[in-house]
Computed example of a mutant assay.
Amino acid sequence: MQKILILHGLGGSDYPHWQAVLAGDLIKQNYTVSFPSFPKRDNPQLKEWKEFLKKEIEHFKPDTIICHSLANVLWFQTCDELDISLEKLMLVAPVSRTRVVEAAKTFYPYTPPKDLKAKEVIMLASTNDPYMTEEEAMLLKEDLNVEINIMQNAGHINAESGFGSHDFALDWLTKDKNEKGYL
Rank of each mutant, 00 (worst) to 15 (best):
122 I>E: 10
51 E>Q: 03
54 K>P: 02
97 R>C: 06
106 T>I: 04
88 K>W: 14
121 V>T: 08
131 Y>K: 01
161 S>Q: 06
61 K>D: 13
12 G>H: 05
152 Q>R: 12
1 M>A: 08
164 G>Q: 10
114 K>D: 05
115 D>I: 00
88 K>C: 05
133 T>F: 00
180 K>A: 10
25 D>G: 13
134 E>K: 06
91 L>M: 08
167 D>G: 07
39 P>Q: 02
139 L>M: 09
26 L>M: 08
123 M>L: 11
144 L>T: 05
51 E>V: 00
65 I>T: 11
68 H>F: 06
125 A>I: 01
64 T>K: 02
120 E>F: 14
85 S>E: 12
159 A>S: 13
112 P>R: 11
110 Y>D: 06
10 L>A: 13
120 E>T: 03
167 D>S: 05
73 V>C: 15
21 V>C: 03
58 E>A: 14
17 H>R: 03
68 H>S: 02
114 K>Y: 08
2 Q>H: 07
166 H>K: 10
153 N>G: 11
1 M>Y: 08
171 D>M: 01
131 Y>Q: 14
68 H>R: 06
118 A>L: 06
90 M>G: 12
138 M>L: 13
101 V>L: 01
153 N>S: 10
15 Y>C: 08
166 H>T: 11
5 L>V: 11
45 Q>C: 00
71 A>G: 05
84 I>Y: 02
116 L>S: 10
128 N>D: 04
107 F>D: 04
182 Y>E: 05
16 P>N: 06
181 G>T: 10
42 D>C: 12
9 G>H: 01
169 A>W: 15
17 H>V: 07
90 M>H: 14
22 L>V: 10
92 V>A: 06
112 P>W: 14
141 K>Y: 15
13 S>F: 12
160 E>C: 03
149 N>L: 09
105 K>F: 05
175 K>M: 10
75 W>D: 00
52 F>I: 01
